[in-house]
């Protein structure tokens, strides 16, 4: 087993916090790991990335060879685009769709989402919305980590143990907010995939999963929502056009 991840985002979004959790979980699980990161000038609001590799055998290169990335895990949608060429043929993209706009030529959202949804192996979540619902916008990184967790080789407890270590000095409340963001992110990601696996077109799957109140999302309900989307598309579209969030459980 060998997993190669690119963690991507914008300086300040907490890429290295994700790396901390995964590095420690990997060591605790008995894997070898290497994780190259970016410090210095580029941390000032620029594009940042980290190459993270773990395996049950020795890892040599700190940098992942081209075409060998299993997961691009990005806290920002535009940042995904830098790593297509690194992705393995069956690799996954797990990304937030919450844009971080600090450049004048940031592409229009529709264009960006069209690009992301054109690739089949994606898990897309609205990390900004999820983190806000969890109680702190800063936890977008943990929301994306949660969304990516089903693709990784750790249990929730194995990861959350180090979310706890990471934030414990900031107090129990901060730990809890980040845990919530992780769990909401995981649920949102699974819900999104559940819709797609039930035959829903990715952009619609994204729109519906984004419309949910993050605290109510239950991936087990994805098949029912998918059925309804196919059966009464107009009703669902009307629901999507409504003001405010919808509760996932209204399908029960």
């Amino acid at each position: 087993m060998e997993k190669n991840l690119i963690l991507a985002g914008v300086g300040g979004q907490g890429i290295l916090s994700i790396a901390f959790v995964l590095d420690n979980a990997a060591v605790r699980a008995g894997y070898t790991f290497k994780q190259a990161e970016v410090h210095g000038m580029s941390q000032r609001g620029g594009a940042v990335q980290s190459n993270l590799r773990y395996a049950d055998h020795e890892i040599y290169s700190d940098l992942i060879p081209g075409g060998r990335v299993d997961v691009v895990l990005s806290v920002e949608p535009l940042e995904v685009e830098r790593y297509w060429k690194m992705l393995a043929p069956d690799g996954w993209v797990v990304s937030s769709v919450t844009p971080y706009v600090n450049i004048p030529d940031y592409p229009p959202e529709d264009e960006l989402l069209a690009q992301l949804t054109s690739y089949s192996n994606t898990i897309l979540v609205d990390a900004g919305k999820i983190a806000k619902a969890a109680g702190t916008l800063k936890a977008q990184n943990m929301a994306v980590l949660g969304a990516a967790s089903p693709l990784l080789d750790f249990t929730d407890d194995q990861l959350l143990e180090f979310v706890n270590v990471l934030f414990s000095r900031k107090g129990e409340r901060v730990v809890q907010l980040n845990e919530r963001a992780y769990r909401f992110g995981k649920a949102a990601g699974l819900f999104f995939r559940g819709l797609i696996d039930a035959g829903i077109e990715p952009r619609l799957a994204l729109d519906l999963s984004r419309k949910m109140d993050p605290s109510t999302v239950d991936p087990g309900l994805a098949p029912r929502w998918a059925k309804r989307l196919k059966g009464e598309p107009d009703a669902v579209r009307a629901l999507l056009a409504q003001e405010g969030d919808i509760a996932c459980g209204q399908e029960q």
Partner: peptide
């Protein structure tokens, strides 16, 4: 070479600020 996907577009640069 171990190729990856072709880059669909060149993403906008995001220099540090």
């Amino acid at each position: 070479p171990q190729g990856g996907l072709e880059l669909p577009t060149a993403p906008a640069n995001r220099p540090p600020t």
